[in-house]
Write a protein that binds this DNA or RNA. Structure first.
Lengths: 199, 199
DNA sequence: CCGATTAACCGAACAGTGTTAGGTTAACCC
DNA sequence: GGGTTAACCTAACACTGTTCGGTTAATCGG
């Protein structure tokens, strides 16, 4: 195929289809050839619109992070922390498969830095020292990324035989998959509430 | 080379060299061919001792997790949680490059389940409901994995120009790399203390 | 002590990966 | 209408994990 009358590709379309593949097939399920195929194109053509696969993933990550809302610091800092963390988690849990990639280096992304900057400033305004503000922000990120990533309850088997006997206190762990999402959310809320209350 | 008089390979030696490569070159820096080369052997020979690369990584992960000590629950549950979390973090932060792999599915590993079982039982003994115990254990894992993984302070640039102007509250972020390890530890301790206190 | 078996390694290959170089043609601008 | 550029292609490179079949040394049974 030579140059088509209307372009088949655009950075936006590539990102959107790539994210759909990641959501559907996981992070390892995305390859440039598969992505190209779903776009009706050969793999090499992607490189006219995207510098590298890593850059593509970074762009997708940035677009996800840009949906995080840290504007809830008007009331008080405790409520602000909670709102910020919830917004982060909402953004991450809508695309859980890309979280491992995100977690590699959040500090380097402009979107992360912008939000971190706001968070840090709000904490300092609330009376915390710069060092304390940094550590509190870090702790909040621990909970957000830990909950989005480890996805605690997913990964448990649904077969009771895998637990009974060997792990005396986990004799009901096989029930976890059924309530995984709810339990994940509640665990996050508990951890978040305890952390903020304990500050 | 035919069969050597004394075997060059053993599962233990393979695991140990593989972990050394991961520590040195990162998780992506480990390939079966490179691993074989450092063992003085061809890649195919590894498969006489190791089922797959994934299995090899799982074995390494298990050996790391098996160093985690959750026996500190004799005194009270708060102190027990803190000791357990510290032991986890110590184990993980000595091999940070493998943490992303570990975080994929900690629930499936026998070593994780054993420690989770003890943790869960101790919390129930302390008076928490089963559901609460599960959520508290999950919250603890959030902080442990979040801190081990996101490695908050690593990833910041050492160049002030990257921050000044653009992020008004982060004008000293370039100092972070120099104190990264200390700050990471302090942030973890703060998050852990706040979480446990807030329960 | 000798023969069969097995254990341990190797070379070559397969299918897959990200990425690049060079070619072809349609669309666009002057 | 000719030149330039943009958008795609094919083919290839250097990798990846893994498997197959072969070669030889160690080991065990009689």
């Amino acid at each position: 195929m030579p140059r088509p009358s209307t372009p088949l590709l655009s950075p936006d379309r590539i990102r959107s289809v790539a994210l759909a593949i990641i959501d559907r097939d996981g992070l390892d399920g995305l390859s440039m050839r598969k992505l190209a195929a779903e776009l009706g194109v050969q793999a090499a053509s992607l490189y006219g619109h995207v510098r590298t696969k890593d850059q593509l993933l970074n762009d997708i990550a940035s677009s996800i992070l840009s949906t995080v809302d840290v504007s809830g610091f008007t009331v008080d800092w405790r409520e602000g922390l909670i709102r910020c963390a919830r917004s982060y988690r909402t953004a991450l849990s809508s695309h859980p498969n890309i979280v491992p990639f995100l977690a590699y280096g959040p500090a380097g992304r402009d979107e992360s830095l912008q939000r971190l900057d706001l968070l840090h400033g709000a904490l300092v305004d609330a009376g915390w020292s710069r060092r304390e503000a940094t550590m509190i922000a870090a702790g909040l990120m621990y909970i957000v990324f830990g909950s989005a990533l480890s996805s605690f309850s997913s990964g448990f088997s649904a077969d009771p035989a895998d637990y009974s006997g060997r792990y005396p206190h986990l004799d009901r762990a096989h029930l976890l998959p059924g309530v995984a999402r709810e339990l994940d959310r509640d665990s996050f809320e508990l951890a978040l509430a305890a952390f903020v209350r304990g500050l």
